[in-house]
Design a protein around this nucleic acid. Structure first.
Length: 337
DNA sequence: AACACAAGCAACCGCCACCTC
DNA sequence: AGAGGTGGCGGTTGCTTGTGT
């Protein structure tokens, strides 16, 4: 029969969130930090399921979320990570801290998948590729996977090396973070800025010194961030895209992958760990740490293989120079963009 | 101007993994 | 050790908005 629903369905409101609900939720989380979602509806009086509250927070109310159009750089990262990780949107989102997994998933489903399909169709016209066939034999599947990995690797290096030249070295901040938020549609639900303004106005109009002292003195997004970082540091159940990772990961991502494009060695991998580990979340470790645990879950094995393939290929393949050089025209994303 | 269709996106659903007792 | 509770994740749905006829 399955588990009972997470909350009593009777009397639970569904559908789009109202500004009032958002304000209630945001103010509650400001006081208590994210987590213990089950208690949120009862403590706030919101007629919402705990899951709905969590989702609303993580996808729209959480500070630091960028909405609106995806940049080319972001597109590339998504494409490459999708090729490597599959539809593991949360993992992909951990490398784009300003984007939510839901956003990335939607963007993939509505934009990128179509684009890639179109391009793959073009590729198939000019090659003997059998990628359209749905039933691969095992060997075919493995070959296909390796090809995909190779292409993704190529494209990834391509993207990051190209983008490096696009950004001033004087600005060490990741291009992702450096980009200004793009205001999305004008509807309420899609505008985090509106929520921020609403919250500010609300706090002006109805101050609650005992409850919102921090917000009274510093009612900005960044201060909001700081408050919530405290919560994240205290063992709350933040997703990988939340908390401290948001300030550091993109840079780490760039350096990791640009490094990886230039020299894949076990030593470098060790450096990656040393440099990045303080900020690594589980997904980052999962991706970049040399396998050490013997009791890894099965789902991790393929990625370990990916890592090894990437490393081995980079070390051994003479074609690597070509890969790093101008021979990018064959790469998927080179055609893609 | 009105209708039909397509696209985009916010939100929901159900499964799974982890944690606590 | 295992059962139950909770949060996280990915797939999917359905409403809203945009575009074409």
């Amino acid at each position: 029969m399955g588990r009972p629903p997470c909350c009593d369905k009777i009397g639970v409101k569904k559908g789009p969130w109202t500004p009032e609900e958002d304000i209630i939720l945001v103010s509650y989380i400001q006081q208590h930090g994210p987590g213990n979602w089950r208690a949120v509806p009862s403590n706030t009086g919101l007629l919402r399921c705990s899951k709905s509250c969590r989702l609303r927070w993580t996808n729209y109310l959480r500070p630091g979320i960028k909405r609106g159009n995806f940049t080319e750089h972001e597109e590339k990262i998504i494409i490459h990570l999708q090729a490597l990780l599959g539809n593991r949107w949360a993992a992909i989102a951990s490398y784009l801290p300003e984007r939510t997994d839901n956003d990335i998933k939607n963007y993939w489903n509505t934009h990128l998948r179509k684009k890639l399909k179109k391009l793959q169709g073009n590729d198939e016209n000019s090659t003997t590729s059998s990628s359209s066939q749905s039933d691969f034999s095992k060997g075919q599947w493995e070959r296909r996977l390796q090809t995909d990995i190779h292409m993704a690797k190529k494209a990834l290096c391509d993207a990051l090396s190209l983008d490096k030249s696009d950004h001033s070295p004087a600005n060490p901040i990741s291009p992702i973070l450096a980009q200004q938020p793009v205001q999305g549609s004008s509807s309420y639900a899609s505008s985090a800025e509106n929520i921020s303004k609403l919250l500010q106005n609300w706090m002006k109009n109805s101050p609650k010194p005992s409850q919102l002292s921090r917000a009274d003195s510093e009612n900005t997004q960044s201060s909001f961030n700081n408050n919530l970082s405290i919560g994240s540091g205290s063992g709350s159940s933040l997703s990988p895209s939340e908390g401290t990772i948001s300030a550091t990961t993109p840079e780490g991502f760039d350096s990791l992958f640009s490094e990886s494009c230039n020299a894949f060695t076990p030593e470098n991998n060790a450096i990656f760990q040393v440099e990045s580990k303080p900020n690594l979340n589980a997904e980052n470790e999962f991706l970049f740490q040399v396998e050490s645990k013997s009791s890894l879950e099965e789902s991790q094995v393929p990625l370990t293989l990916l890592e090894k393939w990437l490393f081995d290929d980079a070390i051994n393949a003479p074609a690597q120079e070509e890969l790093m050089g101008i021979g990018m025209g064959l790469g998927l994303s080179a055609n893609f963009f």
